[in-house]
Design a protein around this nucleic acid. Structure first.
Length: 704
RNA sequence: GGUCGCUUAGCUCAGUUGGUUAGAGCGCUGCAUUGACAUUGCAGAGGUCACAGGUUCGAGUCCUGUAGUGACCACCA
C-alpha cells in the first residue's frame, strides 16, 4: 500500500469495474422494494459545473438504498435544452459569419443535432468521474423518438380535454433571438435611466392640451386612448374629449379608469394595448382596438412617418429631439432576455397556452395529502405559493431546436387540427386538405415536465409499473417552479399518480465569500479540476460536510482539501491495520506471549464496538431522514477522532504484539465503518475494500 | 407592496422534536518528527448564539417586536 491515497490511481479503474459488473443496472425484482431517482437531465452539449456535483445527494441515496437491499434505479439522461442550445449554436455560427437565417429549418435542425451529438460524451464522462452510480444502459435523450411520442400524446390529450388553447396576447419577445418566453424566463433588471421619463404633449380637439408621462414615446403611434383617474379634478373637463397623437394627429378618446395613479407623472397615461401588458388589459376592459406598430424585428412600421424602419431605441431618441421632449431621470425595471440580456419587447403574438389551474389544483392536492413530501419543509410553502399563483403557460417557442408542435392550420378555414404527431390528411373542421404545420416548437420545460413518466414509459410498461412513482426528485431549489411543479402537474395529469413521493431540494453553490458564482465574477469553479487535484470523494464530501440541507453552500477549496485529508486518513488507518496483521504474525512467530495483554484490551475493544453500534444507529436514522450532513459529520468524528485518535492509539502496541483477536475485531469495525461511509466517499472505501477483501470483491455487495 | 429565509468562534457554516460545561472545518498559539498518516499527533486560545421583551423548572431552539441582510414574486405610464 502506498503511504498516500492517490485518487487518480483508483477512481477510473474502480468505476470501470462497477460498470463492467453491472452494479448500476436497474433490475425489476418483485422480491425487492424499488428505489428510483431520475437524474435531472443535464444539457447534452454543455460541460458540467459545480451545481451538477450537487447530485452527489442522489448518489448517496441510491448507494445507501442499494446497501439496504432495495432494487435501485438511478436513471440517466440528457436534455436538448431547446433555446439554450440553439443560442450556443447561433454564437458558433456567428463565428463563421453565418446566421440561422442562412439555412432552412431542416438543415438547421440537422446541424444542431450533429453539434449536440458531437459534444454529448463529455457530460457523461464527467458524471462518471464524480462516481455517480447511474444506469448508463438505459440512458435517454429528450428528443428520443419514444419521449417525443409521449410529449405529442400529452399535448393531444390536453387539447382534447380543453386544457390547451391558442390565444393572441402580449408575450415577452426577444427581437434579437427571435423568440418569446414564459413569464418565468424573463429577467427583471432595475436600471436608472438619466432621461427615462418623458413628458409628451397631446393637443385636444377644440383647443387646449394634455401632457402624459411615458417611458416609451415611440409607442405613441399605437396609442388608442389617453386615460386619467375618474376623480382627478385637474382633468375632469377633458374626459370624453378627443386628443390628437403628436406627429400623426390621429384622434383618440380620453377615458377614465381607477387604474391610473394620480400621483405618478402627470396623472395622465397613454394607452397602447399592442405594446404594454397593462395597457393590453385596459384595452380589453374598455373594448379598445390594438394597433401594433413595432415588428418582431424590433423596428417601427405602419406609422406612415419617417420613423418607420427604425429600431425602437433610435426612434425614441429621434422623437425626443424632434418633439423637444422634456425628460426626467427615472428608475425603471426592464424586462430583459435571460440569455442575450437585451430588452424584451411586449408584442402581440398567437401562441399555445396550457390552462394551468386544473393541473395545479391536482398538484396542490397531492401535496396536501402528503402523497408528495417536500424536504426541507420550508420549500413546501414555496411550492404551494407557486402552484396557487401560476399563470397560464405559454408553451410556444419560435425556435427550431426542439419538438415541433403537432398542430396544423387549415389554409381554407383557418382552424387548427391537433394530432398526436402524425400529419393529418385533412382539416377536422372543413375536411379540406390545405394544411400547414405550426412553425413553433414546445418550450423545453413542457417536454422535460413529462420526464419521469416519459422515460419510464419509454423503457417499457414493466419498468413503468415497477419504478413509478419514483422515490425522490432531487434538484436545486431554483428550478422548483420551472420544473418540479410542472412535473407534478403533468405527471399527475398523465398517470393519475404523483411522479415522486419525496422532493428533496438542495441549495445553490456560492463562492467562499457567499457570492453567486458567475462567469463575469470570475469565481466559477470547475468540478473536474477539483477532482484532478483532490479526488472525487473529497469534492463530494466537501459539498455535503457542514452544510444545512437546502441551504446555499459556500464553496471553498480549503474544505475540499480537508476532505482529501480525511480520505487519506482513512487510507492510512487501513495501511496501519494491514501492517498490524504482519507485525502481529511475526510477534507470534517470535513467541511473544499475547495473552498477557488480552484482558485490558478486550475491555477497550468492546467499548469501540459499542461506540460503533451507537454511531451506526445514529447514521441510519439520519440517512432515512435526509440529514446527510449530520450523518457524514458523525462518521468523520467517529472514524478520525474516536477510532483513529483514541482507540488505535490505545490499542496500537498490543495489536502489533500479536493479539490476533484484537486485530480481527479492529478490522471488523473498520470495515463496517467503510460500508457506512461508502455512499459519501465511494472510491476510497471501495479501494480499501479491495485491499482487505481482494480485487474482485466490491463493497456494493454488502448489506447494511 | 407580497412571500420565504438568514443573523451562532477571526472566516465559512452545523446545531433533528426546547434539556447537563454551545459544535465542526479552515485559520491562530505552543509542543512533538526514522515507527499507519506532517494530507500527522498532543495541548490550547477564541462565542453575553443580532438586539429587546415574553412563554417555560429550563430558550441558540418556541412567541412578539426592532435592526441589519439575502433570495424570489408582483408593480412601476
Amino acid at each position: 500500500m502506498d503511504s498516500k491515497f492517490i485518487p487518480s490511481d483508483h477512481e477510473k479503474k474502480i468505476y470501470d469495474f462497477w460498470e463492467k459488473k453491472g452494479y448500476f443496472e436497474a433490475k425489476i425484482d418483485p422480491k425487492k422494494k424499488p428505489f428510483t431517482i431520475i437524474l435531472p437531465p443535464p444539457n447534452a452539449n454543455a460541460d458540467l459545473h459545480l451545481g451538477h456535483a450537487m447530485y452527489t445527494y442522489e448518489d448517496i441515496m441510491i448507494r445507501f438504498k442499494k446497501l439496504r437491499g432495495y432494487s435501485t434505479f438511478w436513471l440517466s439522461g440528457a436534455d436538448h435544452a431547446g433555446f439554450e442550445t440553439q443560442f450556443v449554436f447561433e454564437k458558433h455560427l456567428k463565428k463563421q459569419d453565418k446566421s440561422r437565417f442562412d439555412y432552412d429549418r431542416e438543415t438547421l435542425y440537422k446541424m444542431i443535432w450533429d453539434f449536440v451529438i458531437k459534444n454529448r460524451g463529455t457530460m457523461e464522462t464527467q458524471l462518471r468521474a464524480l462516481g455517480f452510480s447511474l444506469d448508463w444502459s438505459k440512458t435517454l435523450f429528450t428528443l428520443d423518438e419514444k419521449i417525443v411520442s409521449t410529449v405529442y400524446k400529452t399535448f393531444k390529450k390536453l387539447h382534447d380535454d380543453g386544457l390547451i388553447y391558442r390565444s393572441k396576447r402580449l408575450v415577452n419577445y426577444c427581437t434579437f433571438d427571435g423568440t418569446s418566453f414564459s413569464d418565468l424566463e424573463v429577467l427583471d433588471k432595475e436600471v436608472e435611466v438619466e432621461r427615462g421619463l418623458f413628458h409628451l404633449e397631446y393637443s385636444i380637439k377644440g383647443g387646449g392640451s394634455i401632457t402624459v408621462a411615458t417611458t416609451r414615446p415611440e409607442t405613441m403611434f399605437g396609442d388608442v386612448a389617453l386615460m386619467v383617474h375618474p376623480k382627478d379634478k385637474r382633468y375632469s373637463s377633458l374626459i370624453g374629449k378627443i386628443a390628437l397623437i403628436p406627429v400623426i394627429n390621429k384622434e383618440i378618446p380620453i377615458i377614465t379608469d381607477e387604474y391610473v395613479d394620480m400621483d405618478f407623472g402627470t396623472g395622465a397615461v397613454k394607452v397602447t394595448p399592442a405594446h404594454d401588458f397593462n395597457d393590453f388589459e385596459i384595452g380589453k376592459k374598455h373594448n379598445l382596438p390594438s394597433i401594433q406598430v413595432i415588428g418582431f424585428d424590433g423596428k417601427l412600421y405602419g406609422t406612415g412617418t419617417k420613423y418607420d424602419g427604425m429600431r425602437v431605441a433610435p426612434a425614441r431618441a429621434l422623437l425626443e429631439e424632434d418633439l423637444k421632449l422634456e425628460a426626467k431621470k427615472h428608475t425603471l425595471v426592464l424586462k430583459t432576455c435571460y440569455k442575450c440580456g437585451k430588452t424584451l419587447e411586449p408584442l402581440p403574438l398567437a401562441q399555445w397556452y396550457v390552462k394551468v389551474k386544473p393541473l395545479a389544483d391536482n398538484a396542490l392536492e397531492a401535496l396536501k395529502k402528503k402523497e408528495t413530501v417536500i424536504v426541507p419543509k420550508k420549500f413546501e410553502k414555496h411550492a404551494l405559493n407557486w402552484l396557487t399563483n401560476f399563470h397560464d403557460w405559454n408553451i410556444s417557442r419560435q425556435i427550431v431546436w426542439g419538438i415541433r408542435i403537432p398542430a396544423w392550420k387549415c389554409e381554407d378555414c383557418s382552424e387548427w387540427t391537433v394530432t398526436d404527431g402524425q400529419a393529418p390528411s385533412s382539416c377536422i373542421h372543413c375536411k379540406k386538405s390545405n394544411l400547414v404545420q405550426d412553425e413553433d416548437t414546445f418550450d423545453t420545460w413542457f417536454s422535460s415536465g413529462q420526464w419521469p413518466v416519459a422515460t419510464l414509459k419509454a423503457l417499457g410498461e414493466d419498468y413503468f409499473n415497477y419504478f413509478y412513482p419514483t422515490s425522490v426528485m432531487e434538484t436545486g431549489y431554483d428550478i422548483l417552479p420551472w420544473w418540479v411543479c410542472r412535473m407534478m402537474m403533468l405527471g399527475i395529469y398523465m398517470t393519475g399518480e404523483t411522479p415522486f413521493n419525496t422532493i428533496f431540494l438542495h441549495g445553490l453553490i456560492r463562492d467562499s465569500k457567499g457570492a453567486k458564482m458567475s462567469k463575469s465574477r470570475g469565481n466559477v469553479v470547475n468540478p473536474m479540476i477539483m477532482i484532478e487535484k483532490y479526488g472525487a470523494d473529497a469534492l463530494r464530501a466537501a459539498l455535503i460536510f457542514g452544510t444545512g440541507e437546502g441551504n446555499d453552500i459556500s464553496f471553498s477549496e480549503d474544505k475540499v482539501r480537508s476532505m482529501r485529508n480525511f480520505a487519506n486518513k482513512i487510507w492510512n488507518m487501513g495501511r496501519f491495520l494491514m501492517m498490524t496483521r504482519h507485525s502481529g504474525a511475526q510477534a507470534i512467530e517470535s513467541q511473544v506471549d499475547p495473552i498477557g495483554h488480552s484482558v485490558p484490551s478486550r475491555m477497550t475493544i468492546e467499548d469501540l464496538e459499542k461506540e460503533f453500534q451507537t454511531l451506526k444507529k445514529q447514521v441510519m436514522k439520519d440517512m432515512e431522514a435526509y440529514r446527510f450532513s449530520s450523518a457524514l459529520n458523525s462518521l468523520y468524528e467517529f472514524i478520525w477522532h474516536r477510532y483513529a485518535d483514541f482507540y488505535i492509539e490505545q490499542l496500537k502496541v498490543e495489536a502489533q504484539s500479536g493479539n490476533i483477536t484484537l486485530t480481527k475485531k479492529l478490522e471488523e469495525v473498520y470495515l463496517d465503518s467503510l460500508v457506512l461511509l461508502h455512499p459519501f466517499m465511494p472510491f476510497v472505501t471501495e479501494a480499501l475494500w479491495n485491499v482487505f477483501n481482494g480485487e474482485e470483491r466490491s463493497i456494493l455487495e454488502e448489506q447494511l
